[in-house]
């Protein structure tokens, strides 16, 4: 090719250094390199640059494979609509509106805001109205990673929505509102007389009004307690 095609030191060096020249072509280029300073210089740059790039290879951080497996096991669960809501706190990919139709299908077994919150927690989808008014509370000490913090509308009840995930990939939702949440049907009053708790659609719900109106929902009851405890004790929501 050399001599027949126009002389292209950059492209030929790139091909040569990438190990993609065919054997005959490579032999010719080897011979050409001996006498061509331009090509020799480009090849030399190429080797060094490639060597440096190769040296920057890293192994994936510890835990990443487990995170992937956990996320995939949720995605593979056939009974639930899999959806990873947001990427960190930045690329918030939102998502499916809770339409009147969807609420109608559920048949209003619960008050609208409770229904909307349960549906959001089940499907892990919410329509964002913007960023949350409160800064997302840090629950990393409880092993819960923040997935998103958004301003949402729960069937007419404006609320902050925070979603967290544990290492096993299970999610828990915290809703915080300036208005009281309606009481869920078939709920029981809390022993301390503050708020209520309920089971509905396989989800565990707890609700209270101090220091702020809050509603915590998860399919896994053991994730609800730590979130409620944080709301009550951390001081994040003190007015």
């Amino acid at each position: 090719m050399i001599g027949r095609r126009s002389h292209e030191p950059e492209l030929q060096a790139a091909e040569y250094v990438s190990g993609e020249m065919r054997r005959r072509e490579r032999r010719r280029f080897d011979a050409h390199l001996v006498g061509c300073e331009d090509c020799w210089r480009e090849v030399s740059f190429g080797w060094k640059g490639r060597g440096l790039a190769e040296a920057s290879r890293e192994v994936a951080p510890p835990g990443l494979r487990d995170e992937i497996r956990a996320a995939l096991s949720i995605a593979a669960r056939p009974s639930r609509a899999p959806r990873r809501l947001a990427v960190g706190a930045v690329a918030v990919a939102l998502v499916v509106l809770l339409t009147l139709g969807a609420v109608a299908i559920l048949g209003h077994r619960q008050p609208g805001a409770i229904d909307a919150a349960i549906t959001a927690a089940r499907t892990e989808t919410l329509a964002s109205r913007g960023p949350s008014t409160h800064a997302p509370p840090d629950l990393s000490e409880e092993g819960l990673v923040l997935v998103m913090g958004e301003r949402v509308d729960l069937a007419g009840l404006p609320s902050d929505a925070f979603m967290y995930r544990d290492a096993a990939g299970e999610s828990v939702f915290l809703f915080v509102s300036g208005s009281r949440f309606p009481t869920a049907r078939d709920s029981t009053a809390r022993p301390d007389g503050m708020g209520w708790q309920a089971r509905s659609d396989g989800m565990t719900l707890v609700c209270g009004d101090r220091p702020v109106n809050y509603l915590v929902i998860s399919e896994n009851p053991s994730l609800v307690g730590p979130v409620e405890h944080m709301v009550k004790t951390s001081g994040v929501f003190v007015a």
Binding site: E10, L11, A13, A14, E15, V17, S18, E42, S44, F45, G46, W47, K48, G49, R50, G51, L52, A53
Partner: peptide, 17 residues
């Protein structure tokens, strides 16, 4: 791709030098 590769490798090579 070949041309981008080569033009990217060059400043890395300079850094190494």
């Amino acid at each position: 791709v070949l041309s981008r590769l080569h033009r990217g490798r060059r400043p890395l090579a300079v850094l190494l030098e």
